[in-house]
């Protein structure tokens, strides 16, 4: 079954111009596909088919090659992210301090699973790899904000801050 985000593509002309400009440079770079996808994701926030086609065309590779790379790496996403991106660290240090329960609570509060986005596009949850704040374990992030040394009980209060 074909994989799509199910969200209509709303890329702008400006975004496309910006991407094509970057790609023109990266075309000359050895191994430019990864940086190209990183630039593309920085511009669009995610990598829908429309964007991957531009990358494939500009770099002269097949769409499947692009998708094969995109689907390999966890940080590339074909699904848009929420306005508030929640990350719950499942690194070892956080895990042994109960971040699994933390994630379960966030999922429960928002009614979506890790990797998903709420229907209103407001929240998305990701179970992340170690983000290196092991001293603060267990750690949850919302966009740039980091919440450390928290338990499931604090989750509701933290989410409420973004309402």
């Amino acid at each position: 079954m074909a994989k799509t985000s199910g969200v209509p593509f709303q890329g702008t002309k400006e975004q496309e111009v910006a991407l094509r400009e970057k790609l023109a440079e990266l075309k000359k770079v050895q191994g430019g596909l990864m940086p190209a996808l990183q630039e593309a994701q920085a511009i669009y926030g995610y990598l829908p088919k429309e964007v991957q086609i531009i990358v494939a065309e500009e770099l002269g590779v097949s769409l499947e090659e692009v998708y094969g790379v995109v689907s390999f790496y966890a940080q590339f996403s074909i699904v848009p992210k929420g306005k508030y991106k929640i990350g719950v660290c499942l690194g070892t240090a956080c895990y042994v301090k109960g971040s699994g329960d933390l994630l379960a609570e966030v999922e429960k509060q928002l009614g979506i699973k890790a990797g998903g986005i709420t229907p209103d596009g407001k929240w998305s949850i990701e179970a992340t790899r170690c983000i290196g704040c092991c001293g603060l374990a267990p750690v949850m992030t919302i966009n740039e904000d980091v919440y450390g040394r928290i338990g499931p009980k604090e989750v509701a209060g933290i989410l409420a801050k973004y309402n």
Binding site: P35, Y73, A74, Q75
Partner: peptide, 8 residues
């Protein structure tokens, strides 16, 4: 610098 993209 080349960036990874989340693959251990």
């Amino acid at each position: 610098i080349r960036l990874g993209a989340g693959a251990f």
